[in-house]
Design a protein around this nucleic acid. Structure first.
Lengths: 189, 189
DNA sequence: CGATTTTTTGAATCATATCAACGTACGTGG
DNA sequence: CCACGTACGTTGATATGATTCAAAAAATCG
């Protein structure tokens, strides 16, 4: 039984215990060691991953040959390259464990099979996507509203625990500036 | 009958003619004159809008009191403030017609009613959202990969027709820089 | 046509990047 | 469990891309 996932789903839709049992037989959990990869460029993304423990990051190598993090996956979030998952074309992204982690893989094939039988799963995923999309819109809004320094300060007051959990250079990458600049901001008091 | 919308939906899911008739009775089309608003800050967003003709923009007023466009809505795209629509809290956004336009309003109440009866609608909206979310992810990827000038040049080679359709200052706003800077880029040949 | 909206131009300024060097911490194997 | 090597963080000097402000020129609309 994948309790963390079931709890999460039941916040959005109704699932009976029998349904839960059946769904869970289709899913497999994996444990990841820090720095293990779930996805690498060139590979086709086969699943959507629910993070039940630990922390992952989704990143790519940009034009300047630098790692650019576009998303973190904390406990209770889904992480995947939807583009590759949907089109089954090779990904340009890495998904990697930042800390030891545990994920539940929801395969594309399982997705198609299960949503056939359980329409409320379709509702669940629509709601999850809606939340993810709203978050992405807010992120774009943020990028365009605030300077890099302001974004760092907002971020660390809003997520103080998270800031301590990741190396600074990853935070800088996620926020879209250099580690040196982050260091200088922090030095300013 | 809202043919543009039906065509669009049938690219993603199967809808019989009877279903189509029933669905269409729940929807209403509106025509908008250039500069008309579908949503303004402080109001609660009641619908998701399918753009069947013309061009809309979604924007907000940022910290520097400037209009910041976060999204355009072209023919065949949906546009809304998902956050306000979902939570029924007041929006911070404007949705406005850039050109004379026609939209089909898909009310939140209609959404709940229709997806009850037609599960494939849930699938349709999940797929639409997945596409929108993938686009938002790609946009963030772009912002972090290229300089403002590079982003403008990519954008205008990828969407040459679109660039001619909107005033330059809106394009600058969407791409996240000043109209003056856009003008200088263009002057450079 | 006049009024408004949009675009252009130039000079001064600012936020952030880059490079390079040095300091610190940390985990891994002996 | 210590020492070493690698990964991470800091600092300062210099460079750059983009903004701001102000004014004029051009385009569009009623």
């Amino acid at each position: 039984m994948h309790l963390a996932l079931l709890d999460h789903m039941r916040k959005y839709v109704t699932i009976t215990d029998e349904e839960a049992t059946l769904i869970c037989t289709k899913l497999k959990a994996s444990t990841l060691k820090k720095k293990d990869f779930l996805l690498q460029p060139g590979k086709v993304c086969r699943a959507n991953y629910f993070v039940s423990k630990g922390l992952l990051r989704l990143y790519f190598i940009n034009k300047k040959e630098q790692e650019q993090i576009t998303q973190f996956g904390l406990e209770g979030w889904w992480i995947t390259d939807y583009d590759s998952l949907d089109t089954q074309k090779p990904s340009r992204f890495y998904i990697q464990a930042v800390e030891d982690a545990e994920v539940i893989a929801w395969d594309k094939t399982v997705q198609e099979e299960l949503t056939q039988s359980f329409p409320q799963l379709e509702t669940y995923f629509r709601k999850i996507l809606q939340r993810a999309y709203a978050a992405a819109q807010r992120r774009i809004e943020y990028i365009y509203s605030y300077s890099d320094e302001e974004r760092y300060r907002n971020f660390s007051t809003n997520f103080p625990g998270f800031v301590q959990r990741v190396p600074q250079y990853m935070l800088a990458s996620y926020l879209g500036f250099t580690p040196q600049f982050l260091s200088k901001i922090r030095a300013k008091k």
